[in-house]
Design a protein around this nucleic acid. Structure first.
Lengths: 192, 192
DNA sequence: TATTTACATGAACAATTGTTCATGTAAATA
DNA sequence: TATTTACATGAACAATTGTTCATGTAAATA
């Protein structure tokens, strides 16, 4: 079953290279060089440069959706749901840091109609988070802040992790990170 | 003094276009088309495409540094300093949303040695924020969380604003945004 | 054994790209 | 009036880019 190995080595090499240089700045020749092969060979693995990006982005995007759907369906408190969302982000970051970095940095390079459906999916995801927060407000657990602002601020608290992780610049202990970020999100920076 | 007008119209048009399509994806011909002029004409305004990016990025970066230096020197509490940092981000976002978006999204396209000095400056900025938080911890005002994690999480809470603003997607009342984000940062999402 | 599969090569392509050059012109300035 | 300034044009460039094509080959499969 070593058949897929070469293709997978290609996928991983491309992913890291695109992450390092950016999608537009990474040429097919750059990738070939890193793989020690000819440019043409790459087209045995993938249809086009564009489809390569799509594969990564929709792949990781789907994982986020699957995870949040499970969380939403679970019978736990809103606070616990939010904690689980935090945990999911951290786990995915540990598992697929480069895909996650691409999700944040390179989606702009999608072309229509893929770009449109990607953005639509993202709005759906954000709305699911919004609903969780809204429920918490209605239950009297969360403060009644502006829903838009709280939701985006909350999501932002998770959007820097991948950067430090791909840099190998962060002490990676998922439990610790979860605790720290949860503390920040739920009760803020100030004592008392 | 209408002399600089044409050049400024060019700078503003380029800025928005680069923001919309991304730096790499925006060609000099795209800019020319938007300006209804020939490509060559652009080189009457600017030395190169690269220098255009540098102008924007170091311009806005310097404004952030000037602002945080003033805040740090001021004789107020750590909590107030942090609140002023939040306020500065919001004010700069309102004043220069497209520059701010570029700062977040396009710095990767800088080339050495500019890239190196940009990143160095960014670390300096982050460290200044870190010091403010550290002081708050020492004064017993802020919780004793992991300094790295808190700093990056805090900075992240401010890094989404420009996106919603350039989309014209956010109710822009700086006072309201400041209040909401400060509340989130200082005491979190949960009641009590 | 015959054939399919997965990977590999080198040459060539058409299009796109940033930039330069020689040249021009209307308005502001000396 | 003479000259500088700021803006403008069209043609041309060399380099880069994604992709295709005809062809090959070792190993796995039928």
């Amino acid at each position: 079953m070593g058949k897929i190995t070469k293709r997978e080595r290609f996928l991983e090499t491309s992913l890291k290279l695109i992450n390092e240089k950016g999608f537009k700045a990474t040429t097919m020749r750059d990738i070939a060089q890193k793989l020690n092969c000819e440019v043409a060979n790459i087209y045995n693995y993938v249809d086009s440069k564009q489809s390569l990006l799509e594969t990564y982005l929709f792949g990781i995007s789907n994982e986020f959706h699957a995870a949040i759907d499970t969380i939403i369906e679970s019978k736990v408190t809103s606070e616990e749901k939010l904690r689980l969302i935090i945990r999911t982000h951290i786990d995915l970051m540990v598992k697929k840091p480069y895909e996650l970095a691409l999700l944040v940095n390179e989606w702009r390079n999608l072309k229509e109609p893929k770009l449109g459906s990607f953005l639509a999916e993202r709005v759906v995801y954000e709305n699911k988070v919004k609903v969780v927060i809204q429920e918490g407000v209605e239950e009297g657990v969360f403060k009644n802040l502006d829903l838009e602002i709280v939701t985006y601020t909350f999501l932002s608290t998770l959007r820097w992790l991948h950067d430090k992780y791909t840099d190998h610049n962060l002490d990676i202990n998922p439990d610790k990170i979860e605790k720290q970020i949860s503390e920040f999100v739920f009760s803020g920076i100030c004592k008392k």
